[in-house]
């Protein structure tokens, strides 16, 4: 707040402002709001809603700062600040939030619960803003709730953030629509790229996992690099047609209610005949993955699958052994396939 006051003082009509000139005050606030910076932690659902969020805030005239890629330091800070029992992605998220404190005026930490009457997110997402606020009491959090089970739409949630930031309903709605379009464009682009890769004759491995593990520079990034070094193309479970994936997920299980896992197993069903092997990437101790991956290992046949469990390992040797030997299996299988 202190530097805000300084900005106000540096404002040209400071004297008038101090005398309480209404117009000038409005102008000053406008100036502040215009240059308010919103921080987006590059973790968890950033990998699914990042472009929507960025576009939404840009459209409303705010600056946006995305935290840097996850590094060892991010994880170390995250591990220090949260309970030991939290999962790896949540620790990483905390590291990102910490790096944004002091750099931004607001930090977006949404609460995701139900995405439809029958589907929901892992409970860690339900409590995310509370966990963050309790961990960092001075973090300037803004949040929105995605709870479609309660007859509230995503648009309504975005209008509410717009309102907290002093924006009109229509402006927020427009910005939300623009955000959706941008997000969709990116996803379609990614899907097109992946579908060309799937049709090539190169050797391919599907990385099936939560999006925030696959694309995290420290977790999935390392894995992607190792796979590529072995001359294999990695393809990703979150770059498939989601609606199709949700429908296909029923082939493996009808009863799942975790949105992200449902899409992941649908992607496995969708791609299993187009890839040479599947890697189930999971982070310690993910409850939903523990259940769902076991289901996949038992029910998906005729394609080699391995499960890789990540934690705060620092030595990449174990990961390397597993990738190398998996690629060896694929090399030997291929002529028979």
């Amino acid at each position: 707040m202190k530097d805000r006051m300084e900005t106000i003082r540096s404002f040209s009509c400071l004297e008038n402002f101090e005398r309480g000139d209404i117009n000038c005050t409005k102008l000053a606030i406008l100036h502040l709001v215009m240059h308010m910076k919103i921080g987006l932690p590059k973790a968890l659902l950033y990998y699914r809603y990042g472009v929507l969020w960025e576009t939404f805030f840009h459209e409303l005239g705010f600056d946006v700062e995305v935290s840097a890629d996850t590094s060892k330091e991010t994880l170390e800070i995250g591990t220090k600040t949260t309970l030991d029992e939290n999962c790896l992605p949540l620790k990483i998220f905390m590291g990102h939030v910490k790096s944004l404190i002091g750099q931004c005026d607001r930090i977006l930490v949404p609460r995701f619960s139900r995405t439809s009457k029958t589907e929901e997110y892992c409970v860690r997402f339900w409590g995310l803003p509370d966990v963050v606020q309790n961990t960092f009491p001075n973090a300037p959090i803004i949040s929105y709730n995605l709870d479609i089970g309660l007859h509230r739409s995503e648009a309504a949630a975005f209008i509410k953030i717009g309102h907290t930031l002093g924006k009109s309903k229509s402006a927020a709605f427009q910005a939300y629509r623009a955000g959706c379009r941008a997000q969709q464009r990116l996803e379609q682009q990614n899907m097109r790229v992946q579908s060309t890769q799937l049709h090539k004759s190169d050797k391919k491995i599907l990385i099936a996992a939560q999006p925030y593990l696959i694309h995290d520079a420290y977790v999935g990034g390392q894995l992607q690099k190792m796979i590529a070094q072995q001359g294999v193309t990695p393809v990703f479970s979150d770059r498939c047609n989601r609606r199709l994936c949700r429908a296909l997920s029923k082939e493996i299980s009808n009863d799942l209610y975790w949105s992200l896992n449902k899409e992941m197993i649908g992607a496995i069903e969708l791609c299993k005949n187009q890839v040479d092997g599947i890697i189930l990437l999971t982070a310690f101790p993910c409850g939903s993955d523990a259940l769902v991956n076991e289901l996949v290992l038992r029910r998906v046949q005729n394609v080699p699958i391995i499960q890789i469990l990540m934690d705060e390992h620092t030595a990449p040797a174990g990961l390397e052994t597993r990738i190398e030997s998996f690629v060896d299996i694929l090399a030997k299988r291929r002529p028979y396939a």
């Binding site: 310690f284 080699p304 391995i306 469990l309 934690d311 052994t321 597993r322 030997s325 060896d328 299996i329 030997k332 299988r333 028979y336």
Partner: peptide, 10 residues
Amino acid sequence: IVKDYAMNTL
């Protein structure tokens, strides 16, 4: 040919 394998985890 090797069809499947598993290693101890953590």
